[in-house]
Design a protein around this nucleic acid. Structure first.
Lengths: 213, 213
DNA sequence: GAGAATATACCCAGTAATGGGTATCTATAC
DNA sequence: GTATAGATACCCATTACTGGGTATATTCTC
């Protein structure tokens, strides 16, 4: 990648000097990346972000005084143009979403190569966002709705789904090709099993359990 | 970025020759990117993905025979290691999520610079995922529940909330210190305004509009 | 074979809700 | 003063649903 680059100034934030030095040494082998500073706490990071005005801040999540996410939020508040990438062991969705919402432009797992980190830095420097592959997968897939392992029978699930869609017993009977009395009976059984006494309650249950997809 | 690169072979998929040629010309100015082929349809893309084995496939969403997302899915099925980036005018969340779920490693808007595209290509080539900034923001933030600004009156909101909690008209009357007849009237007005005919429907509405917090 | 679960269907007397109205009072805007 | 909106309340005939049952047939498990 040699199409006219200037040096990207990077501030490294991590409370482990071994990590800071290790990553710093690796990145400095890339001829358009310069490590302009390091910080071991969130407060230091915030201070040096202002003082050094780095192009990119590489932020660990676990800092002794505050989370990297909180430091990110504060830095983005005082310097909205700051480009912050999170470096983390964790790929869980909540962290990733919080990081993006807090203004982070990247989220990299610590198990990737320094080449990938360097590429990520350049990608973010150019205005995009970068995520390790596992991270973006967890971002795209919300946690499954907990489907109860269902105390309702197949037919009862049919009936509650119909009911929650607003169908009368008469309509449900027609839709499921059974008698209205059967619908009533299923309805009674559903209420007894779920200990829910009203149509509104059953509707809520159906929604909360993903029966209305 | 000159730390030991080989050339990245790129297949361009777009049904507009101007786009294909334009992007192709821009990318070829980067000395580690080679355009090894172009395709104007999904079927061609699938065929050339197998024949040319490019490192990266740059896929437009709108193709004449199938969506770029569908072509992506099929290519990933036959070549799971293929790295596909979507090129699109659209930053909407459904497309982005579907692209990731279909196996895409990147999603770039067509309004970004060729430098950003080249960087994205390299980022994806190295194993990460890349998104234009606007795209990752829409990915992190599910659409706000549309809170209607509210065609229901204050009292009507009270009643629908009570109703969705499963209270009978009698109970609602007691809770709100009004007559049952008034509850019925409010209920009629709510249904008319929302064009929703059933308790189940109103319950769903209440849930979807955050009235049951 | 016995028992349980599921699906189907019915009865009874009662409650709950409905659509289509009507009406009054108060507050606000013009 | 007039018109409108919101809150309150009512009437009527009807539909929808309910709790507490009862029952039969089928399938599966022990």
């Amino acid at each position: 990648m040699s199409n006219g680059n200037t040096s990207i100034n990077v501030l490294l934030v991590d409370d482990h000097p071994l990590v800071t030095e290790g990553i710093g040494a690796c990145l400095e082998t890339w001829d358009n990346i310069t490590i302009v500073g390091t910080a071991a706490t969130g407060a230091q990071a915030i201070e040096k972000a202002t003082a050094l005005k780095p192009d990119i801040i590489l932020m660990d999540i676990n800092l002794p005084d505050m989370t990297g996410l909180e430091a990110t939020r504060q830095i983005k508040q005082q310097t909205p143009d700051a480009r912050i990438m999170i470096l983390s062991m964790h790929d869980n969705r909540e962290y990733v979403v919080s990081a993006i919402e807090g203004g982070a432009s990247g989220y990299i797992l610590k198990d990737v190569s320094s080449a990938e980190v360097a590429t990520a830095i350049e990608a973010v420097y150019r205005g995009g966002t970068y995520f390790s592959a596992e991270v973006s997968r967890s971002l795209a897939s919300p946690p499954d709705t907990p489907k109860t392992d269902s105390i309702l029978t197949t037919r009862e699930n049919d009936v509650i789904t119909e009911l929650a869609r607003g169908n009368t017993n008469k309509m449900i009977a027609r839709n499921l090709d059974i008698s209205e009395r059967t619908v009533e009976t299923h309805r009674k059984n559903i209420k007894r099993k779920l200990k829910i006494g009203t149509t509104a309650g059953l509707t809520r249950y159906a929604m909360e359990n993903g029966l209305l997809s």
